[in-house]
Design a protein around this nucleic acid. Structure first.
Lengths: 224, 224
DNA sequence: CGAGAGCCATGACTTAGGTCAATTTATCAA
DNA sequence: TTGATAAATTGACCTAAGTCATGGCTCTCG
């Protein structure tokens, strides 16, 4: 994939006038990462803005004791790393490739200039930041007000909503899903088991089938 | 306080050129709320941007079973409610006055225009959004990776850092602090008791004294 | 002043979910 | 294919923290 095509695949730049668009490849750099490689570390000086064009990246924090909380997983078309561009200069969390990965990287300075000169791009950026705020508020709500089975059910419903069938594959290894949901493998495994025994889902490896959508929805909003 | 003075007290507008500044009172409305009054409700159409000039407002979500999670408490000089201006049109959480409160309200449309025409204001807005993202990421980290005593200790250290003495008053009723920390009154009460027994703090009503700063810091980063 | 309302403390009890450890099952490179 | 490494399951156990219930204290308002 050439750089211009790569830039085109980034949702964030959609609708940008041609002449601005053509500048983007010049101010960006293609970076490659292998599976498990670190893109950046929390609290160290970074000057971000990444847009993956292949593979996915997880954004996460870890506790001193090693437990991990995944905040988000970003794939092609999405973008991340804006925070240090505008404030603080450091990234609030860690970024690591969970798959072999290629990403466009926009150095802080040039990108900041560009956004300063283009009100539409600025408005898009504010929308993106706002959307991420909304997502994090929901995550806090989930973590502090819902119990784990409800979070698991919501997650399955979310996956389902971007599929065309009640049978689909989990998008991450189970251990990673657990970290995304603020829990651990063992707990997730037990919840899957219980859902299976109750005839709500069927699970075969990483392929899952939703058998009782209504009950799953009930559980997702805490209906027990 | 007249409107111009009120606008001046909002940090967010700091450094704005005179002529833009003078437009602000025209596009804003002063709203008053009594203690406990609701400013807005999550998920209903809002077109926000509030800047309190007197009193504080809590931003929170509640679970179906009634438990509350406070996301933030905003007071004079700060601003909130930007999310629906740029994205979605609804507020992600509820806002309620915890004290008699006066706030400037900037209707979406005018404010959006203003920000579109002023790159510096836009940059400030992006910085503010980024900062809030950072705060929420930290909150998620706290909620999912730390246990309650560590969160309590961090909270006390945070309060201390904006005071000039090791003795100071809690800024909220204890029940509200509990909700801010993602727990409940009883648990907080027990933790305060334990800290007191261990000689880490002394508590008298809502006046607290930090007796052993080192130990408090240890607990804050999970040192147990 | 006295009655009610809110706030806080504390005890008894329950439970969700984490830890540890032992196996089983996949995955993948050689 | 096989051996090795990682991922997932499952059981036994433990504990942080939530629920429920009671009682005291403080403040306000009639």
């Amino acid at each position: 994939m050439d750089k211009l095509a790569a830039v085109k695949s980034v949702m964030f730049f959609d609708g940008l006038p041609e002449e601005k668009f053509n500048k983007l490849p010049d101010i960006s750099i293609v970076k490659k990462y292998r599976k498990g490689e670190t893109l950046f570390v929390a609290d160290v000086l970074a000057n971000g803005f990444f847009a993956p064009i292949k593979g996915r990246v997880k954004i996460f924090r870890t506790s001193p004791s090693g437990k991990e909380q995944i905040l988000h997983v970003f794939g092609p078309g999405e973008a991340f790393g804006e925070v240090p561009v505008f404030e603080g200069g450091t990234f609030p969390a860690n970024g690591q490739a969970i798959e072999p990965c290629e990403a466009l990287f926009f150095p802080r300075r040039d990108f900041k200039n560009m956004i300063k000169e283009d009100p539409d791009l600025a408005m898009k950026m504010m929308a993106m930041l706002s959307q991420k705020l909304r997502i994090l508020v929901n995550k806090i709500d989930d973590l502090s007000l819902k119990e784990t089975p409800a979070r698991v059910a919501s997650y399955l419903l979310l996956l389902r909503s971007s599929q065309d069938s009640d049978t689909f594959k989990l998008d991450l290894p189970k251990g990673q899903i657990a970290f995304y949901l603020g829990t651990i493998q063992e707990t997730l495994s037990r919840i899957f088991k219980r859902f299976t025994e109750q005839g709500i889902i069927a699970l075969n490896g990483n392929e899952i089938t939703i058998l009782d959508m209504d009950q799953l929805k009930d559980i997702a909003d805490e209906g027990r």
